[in-house]
Design a binder for these strands. Structure first.
Length: 484
RNA sequence: GGCCCAUUCGUCUAUCGGUUAGGACGUCAGAUUUUCAUUCUGAAAAGAGGAGUUCGACUCUCCUAUGGGCUACCA
């Protein structure tokens, strides 16, 4: 194959679905791997389903994902226009050609007649009524202005087979095929026609698309043959599922790229994760940058069965990406989440602490919640089997802690830790016991973005001492509970 | 209903006739530690079912079951 060209052809009907993103990714990877072109085409032939900003969402997603197209409506190219609604004349011309060669025919059937064709299972199958109209009848109906569509004329015998790069040999009996509508009465083509014309005209060599097109591909091949065009290679992709039963759906609210960004996932992580859904790199490597993906990608690694989207694993990958962010970069990503905090804290320190401890940016509010809300935490938190500490021990030790920290000259992590370490030694207890207590007493949280000394450092001397005292008085006020 | 496709641990997957069926996420259990978290080690965890073909099937064939897709003047 001399010059590989792939395309991503979304229809602007809403947000960018995560499954679409993966299709775009694979098409991009495949093209780039062989130094070919990746083309963006907007399939806006259904005027009723168009959504206002959907095209914008497509551009922004591709940009954020760093999937740069070589040709497209916004960047132009030799095969434009790249928006189907601007190509009506082209489809018309090719439809006429099909009409001339009897591979297509005018159909004047009304909606009512079509509806009367439903069978006992509730399905409708066009009976090819207009296929047998005489030339005179056609001329007459055309002349009297009856609305019409143009339908593909499929042979009623034989089989149409093709070889998919993922699914292998697929063959379907022609009698199962429908006389699809190619051109709608509003003059717009259907997907069934436009994709063939455009893929040919845009010199697409490999068609990447969802496996829902597997059974209509024979129709398209018949069209290519009717035109005498070369049939592209097909790469049909398995679906990404929400669970075993249902596809990931826009309806569910969390299946599009924007939503994941909002949840605090990094584009690189999402892309990396999605690449692995339904494709295996034939190695144990799981973390890939975009360029590494280009290098590693191979259609032979694409699987045939659908894959369930697992946000838990995405979180794991995302955590990896977050950890390796330059500190300044992480801080600027995290900063918006700090706006809600009213207690003054050293945010740079906060960032440094949480960067290694979160899997998504949206974990931040939970993680830093203790900064503003402290009162009323459960004193049972002092009881830890693991740290061998208890509320009783806390009540006993806190006065000493307060005293030791009050007199601390230098409020640094080293000084704090040293002081607490000495105190533990003095009271001959394990430092882990003490540190557990101090950490809880200062934060009121079981899980914190750092250890005891770091938490003291973060909230500052004044607030740390205030909280230690508060915790102590709460412990003193509490009725001693009999050990159960 | 018809046609097409799929089916390995909970999830993503490896295996392309001969393996103790491997890895990753998650889970659980230990260990380590400048405290939380990390890290490390270990464990539990799978070939939908049934017939064939074969010396031998997760791998090939067929049937069944289950799931998905298509069956629109949607893509």
């Amino acid at each position: 194959m001399s010059n590989i060209r792939t395309r991503f052809a979304p229809s602007p009907t809403g947000f960018m679905h995560i499954g679409n993103l993966r299709t775009a990714l694979y098409a991009y990877l495949f093209a780039k791997k062989s130094k070919g072109q990746f083309i963006l085409r907007i399939e806006d032939t259904d005027q009723e389903r168009l959504v206002g900003d959907a095209v914008k969402a497509i551009y922004s997603t591709l940009k954020l994902a760093n999937l740069q197209h070589d040709e497209g409506p916004d960047v132009g190219g030799p095969c434009g226009p790249y928006t189907q609604s601007e190509r009506k004349d082209i489809y018309k011309k090719y439809a006429n050609e099909l009409l001339d060669t009897s591979h297509a025919y005018y159909c004047f059937c009304s909606k009512e007649r079509l509806d009367s064709l439903v069978d006992e299972t509730g399905n409708r199958r066009y009976d090819k009524h207009c296929r047998y109209l005489t030339r005179e009848e056609i001329e007459q109906k055309l002349a009297s202005g009856i609305p019409y569509v143009i339908r593909q004329s499929v042979p009623s015998e034989g089989v149409t087979a093709f070889s998919d790069l993922v699914y292998g040999e697929i063959s379907i009996e022609n009698r199962e095929l429908h006389d699809n509508i190619l051109l709608k009465s509003d003059g717009f083509p259907t997907y069934n026609f436009a994709n063939v014309v455009d893929d040919h005209l845009m010199k697409i060599t490999h068609v990447f698309r969802g496996m829902e097109y597997l059974s209509s591909t024979p129709n398209y091949n018949l069209l290519y043959e009717a035109f005498g065009w070369t049939i592209p290679l097909y790469v049909h992709l398995p679906h990404i599922m929400r669970d075993k039963r249902s596809k990931l759906s826009k309806r569910h609210g969390d299946a599009n790229f924007e939503d994941f960004l909002e949840k605090g996932f990094l584009p690189e992580a999402i892309l990396n994760y999605v690449a692995l859904l339904g494709w295996n790199p034939k190695s144990e490597v799981e973390k890939f940058s975009l360029t590494e993906l280009v290098d590693a990608f191979d259609v032979s690694g694409i699987s045939k069965s659908s894959a369930v989207f697992d946000e838990v694993k995405l979180r794991w990958l995302n955590a990896l990406y977050i950890k390796e962010l330059p500190p300044q970069r992480f801080h600027s990503l995290a900063a918006p989440y700090y706006r809600a905090i009213s207690t003054p804290v050293e945010v740079n320190l906060l960032s440094a602490l949480i960067q290694t401890r979160i899997s998504a940016l949206s974990d931040i509010p939970d993680m830093v919640g203790f900064v503003d809300s402290f009162d009323g935490y459960s004193l049972e938190m002092f009881d830890s089997k693991d740290a061998k500490s208890s509320a009783l021990l806390a009540k006993e030790l806190l006065p000493d802690v307060i005293e030791a920290l009050e007199s601390l000259e230098c409020w640094s992590n080293e000084a704090l830790f040293g002081a607490l370490e000495r105190l533990a030694e003095l009271r001959s207890i394990k430092k882990k016991q003490l540190l557990w207590i101090v950490r809880i007493a200062v934060t009121g949280r079981l899980s914190t973005p750092g250890g005891a000394s770091e938490m003291c450092l973060l909230v500052g001397k004044e607030l740390a001492l205030e909280r230690l005292r508060k915790s102590l008085s709460r412990l003193r006020a509490a009725q001693p509970v009999e050990s159960e």
